Simulated scan of single mutants.
Amino acid sequence: MKTCFFIFLFVFSISCLAVVKRHDIPPENYVLKEAPDFLVDMPHEGHGALINPSWVVTVAHTIFYNYIGKSLRIGSNTYQIKKVYIHPEFEKPSEILLKGNLAPLMSFFKARSDIALIKLSSPVNDVLPIALYTNIKEQGKTVTVFGKGATGNGLIGEESDTKSLKQLNHFQNIIENAETNWLTFKFDKPTNGLPLEGMHGSGDSGGASVIYQGGKPFLVGLSSWQLAHGDISDFKGGLYGTTAYQVRISNYSEWIKDVIADELKTVN
């Protein structure tokens, strides 16, 4: 049972309610009444971001099976998924990695490329796509992160039964490191944390991590996983001191451009 819970929380951690918050800040401060137009809910859980009128980017582990033909609600319309491109360096963990010491699984997560592109059946014409952040100077910047995953607070961690609430939240954090495939930040205690300090939770996967420049949002990352230590059966996500890993968009900007360009060649 615990192993199944871990698989759900870590590997298929997609979207549903909120984010993990500071314990000393009213939870409603994190709540958003409306989602950014570019934020897209995946068919079951998790999120993606509209980066082109015909394309959505998400984390690969939100793709549970063949999603071709599934619908996505974007803006005021519904669009079908026409094609899915999963990065060639993405793999699912073997059963042996989902037992015992977490160290091998953490190394596995860090080595893979957790990103996918979704081609829509027709272009979106009533939503402005979010621009990609292609600068590699992410370290030290404040990001705003959106999600509907399990909520809770830094003292007790995330509470899995809150996923069913499906309430949109946002939080902020400061990027500590940019490590090839990944951006990382730590969930700091109130004495060191931002006013809306937070951590992505189970169900937030693929949620957009955004940098604002001149009032314009740029997609810098996608919520992916949390660093954990010890035995898998003792894991508790979202505690103060936990490090979050987000897909580093700048590292994949060329792959994204190449996939879209190749698809245009095929169509033409």
Rank of each mutant, 00 (worst) to 15 (best):
residue 138 E to D: 10
residue 226 Q to W: 11
residue 77 N to H: 11
residue 192 N to K: 06
residue 38 F to V: 10
residue 198 G to N: 04
residue 224 S to H: 10
residue 53 P to W: 04
residue 139 Q to T: 14
residue 86 I to Q: 09
residue 90 F to R: 10
residue 140 G to I: 02
residue 268 N to S: 15
residue 51 I to E: 00
residue 257 K to D: 06
residue 75 G to D: 05
residue 79 Y to K: 14
residue 166 K to L: 01
residue 232 I to C: 01
residue 17 L to V: 10
residue 181 N to A: 08
residue 220 V to C: 07
residue 111 A to T: 04
residue 17 L to Q: 13
residue 69 G to K: 06
residue 107 S to N: 10
residue 105 L to N: 07
residue 105 L to Q: 00
residue 85 Y to T: 05
residue 9 L to H: 14
residue 106 M to C: 12
residue 37 D to I: 07
residue 136 I to F: 06
residue 197 E to A: 01
residue 92 K to Y: 14
residue 159 E to C: 13
residue 264 L to A: 07
residue 101 N to T: 08
residue 234 D to M: 02
residue 30 Y to V: 02
residue 59 V to G: 15
residue 213 Q to Y: 02
residue 100 G to C: 08
residue 158 E to S: 11
residue 32 L to H: 04
residue 228 A to P: 07
residue 195 P to L: 11
residue 264 L to W: 06
residue 40 V to Q: 03
residue 176 E to F: 11
residue 162 T to Q: 00
residue 193 G to P: 01
residue 259 V to N: 01
residue 140 G to W: 11
residue 89 E to K: 15
residue 190 P to M: 05
residue 252 Y to C: 07
residue 147 G to Y: 02
residue 180 T to G: 10
residue 240 Y to D: 04
residue 13 S to Y: 06
residue 187 F to R: 11
residue 20 V to G: 00
residue 39 L to F: 14
residue 233 S to C: 08
residue 237 G to W: 02
residue 153 N to P: 05
residue 228 A to S: 13
residue 137 K to A: 02
residue 170 H to I: 05
residue 110 K to P: 01
residue 81 I to F: 09
residue 198 G to P: 04
residue 142 T to G: 10
residue 193 G to C: 13
residue 242 T to Q: 12
residue 25 I to G: 02
residue 141 K to F: 14
residue 232 I to M: 00
residue 104 P to L: 09
residue 196 L to H: 11
residue 32 L to E: 07
residue 12 F to Y: 10
residue 214 G to I: 00
residue 131 A to S: 12
residue 46 G to T: 03
residue 41 D to C: 15
residue 205 S to Q: 04
residue 64 F to C: 08
residue 203 G to R: 02
residue 132 L to D: 01
residue 98 L to D: 00
residue 225 W to F: 15
residue 200 H to E: 08
residue 140 G to A: 00
residue 215 G to R: 15
residue 201 G to I: 05
residue 71 S to N: 03
residue 157 G to D: 00
residue 153 N to T: 06
residue 196 L to C: 01
residue 7 I to F: 14
residue 88 P to E: 07
residue 140 G to P: 04
residue 214 G to Y: 00
residue 207 G to H: 05
residue 8 F to I: 13
residue 14 I to E: 03
residue 4 C to G: 07
residue 214 G to A: 01
residue 178 A to V: 00
residue 80 Q to Y: 06
residue 223 S to E: 08
residue 87 H to K: 12
residue 30 Y to R: 09
residue 249 I to Q: 04
residue 23 H to L: 10
residue 12 F to A: 07
residue 120 L to P: 07
residue 75 G to I: 02
residue 197 E to F: 07
residue 107 S to K: 15
residue 161 D to H: 01
residue 120 L to D: 03
residue 79 Y to W: 08
residue 56 V to G: 00
residue 73 R to T: 10
residue 150 A to L: 01
residue 97 L to G: 04
residue 96 I to A: 12
residue 187 F to V: 05
residue 73 R to F: 09
residue 205 S to K: 04
residue 178 A to Q: 04
residue 117 L to T: 05
residue 259 V to D: 03
residue 169 N to S: 12
residue 216 K to I: 15
residue 212 Y to V: 11
residue 92 K to G: 06
residue 241 G to Q: 13
residue 34 E to Y: 09
residue 191 T to K: 13
residue 31 V to G: 12
residue 175 I to N: 00
residue 29 N to P: 03
residue 44 H to Y: 05
residue 48 G to T: 01
residue 261 A to G: 14
